[in-house]
């Protein structure tokens, strides 16, 4: 039964991907990309990867769509007609597709317990997580402690992406556009979306905090929570106008969150070294190694959440500020 459902979802995925390539209306393409992410999230979920599914749904289907739409507001809605180069692209894609199909012949069957990926370090992680960390979600343990270096790198990628977007789009618009334009922006004059939205924003942020601090026991963690909280603030910005959202969470706070989140993560590692352990070895943070691990994971997850939330909101505001310039 689950196999039929997975096949159905994958078929829909292929259809959506073809539709994205085929459509010339960029607005439709953005919406289809969102649907693609949602289908992908469902796929991840039936493969029992709840953490990845949550990330895909929150980031891929949620925040990315909003950022795409705000980018689309700066450009045209229709794709430019392309000139030439189609045959080269077709041949390249064809060769790559054949290579990938050829590679799948050596791929172990889905869920095969003898597959290399299930034989390498995974059994050790599964066995040692309850002993070292004292909580059940192995994904969080792997992500934030066993492979903490990778996650630190990811946070710095988020940081670098945010700085890059801000450099390209400009941190601060010219003076005259700083005047609040409350009358025209936001959904002030639309009673129903405003009432419902106002009702939802606190619950979205609360759910984000739950995902943040429950990541050790259920699916979730800093990345997902950051995206969900950013969605809540973006909803507020759409309802009340961008100026009002910037008054609630100013740019300086957002940049502080991005920098502070990355710094918090790194400084936990340094503190671990100062207390006599290895970099990002949280066991030395408390007298009991298990408590030390939990404390370290709690702090670095908070850092991840801050960095992701700040970066997404900074990017959103960078696009929105350009919008009001033109």
């Amino acid at each position: 039964m689950i196999f039929v459902f997975a096949l159905f979802l994958l078929t829909l995925l292929v259809i959506t991907a073809l539709a994205i390539v085929h459509t010339e209306n960029l607005f439709v393409a953005v919406m289809l990309t969102s649907i693609f992410s949602l289908l992908m999230a469902a796929n991840f979920f039936i493969l029992d990867a709840a953490d990845v599914a949550l990330t895909e749904a929150a980031v891929g289907a949620g925040v990315t769509t909003v950022i795409f739409l705000s980018a689309l507001a700066l450009t045209g809605e229709r794709e430019k007609p392309r000139v030439g180069g189609r045959n080269i692209a077709l041949v390249t894609v064809g060769i790559l597709a054949l290579l990938i199909i050829y590679a799948t012949f050596d791929k172990p069957r889905l869920g095969d317990p003898n597959a290399p990926v299930h034989q390498h370090v995974a059994p050790w992680y599964l066995e040692k997580t309850p002993e070292y960390m004292g909580f059940p979600n192995v994904v969080t343990a792997v992500l934030s402690s066993f492979r903490g270096y990778d996650t630190l790198g990811e946070v710095f990628v988020v940081f670098a992406a945010c700085i890059g977007v801000l450099f390209i789009l400009g941190v601060r618009p010219p003076r005259e556009s700083l005047e609040p334009r409350d009358e025209s922006s936001g959904l002030r004059h639309h009673l129903i979306p405003q009432v419902v939205g106002r009702l939802l924003v606190p619950f979205i942020v609360l759910f984000g905090l739950y995902v943040q601090f429950h990541g050790e026991y259920g699916p979730g963690g800093g990345f997902q929570a950051g995206a969900i909280i950013a969605t809540g603030v973006i909803l507020y910005a759409l309802l009340e106008g961008e100026a009002e959202a910037l008054r609630a969470v100013p740019r300086s706070v957002l940049l502080g969150m991005v920098i502070g989140g990355a710094m918090l993560f790194g400084s936990v590692g340094v503190v671990c070294m100062l207390m006599g352990g290895a970099f990002l070895d949280y066991s030395v943070l408390a007298a009991d190694p298990v408590w030390g691990q939990q404390l370290g994971i709690l702090i670095i997850e908070a850092g991840v959440g801050m960095a992701v939330c700040g970066a997404l909101l900074s990017i959103f505001h960078a696009f929105a500020a350009r919008e009001s310039l033109s």
């Binding site: 129903i192 979306p193 419902v196 939205g197 009702l199 619950f203």
Partner: peptide, 16 residues
């Protein structure tokens, strides 16, 4: 409850 609140609101916003 979430879906019952957001669904009709989205439909309204779309029609509007």
């Amino acid at each position: 409850l979430f879906l019952l609140l957001t669904g009709p609101t989205a439909t309204y916003a779309l029609a509007n």
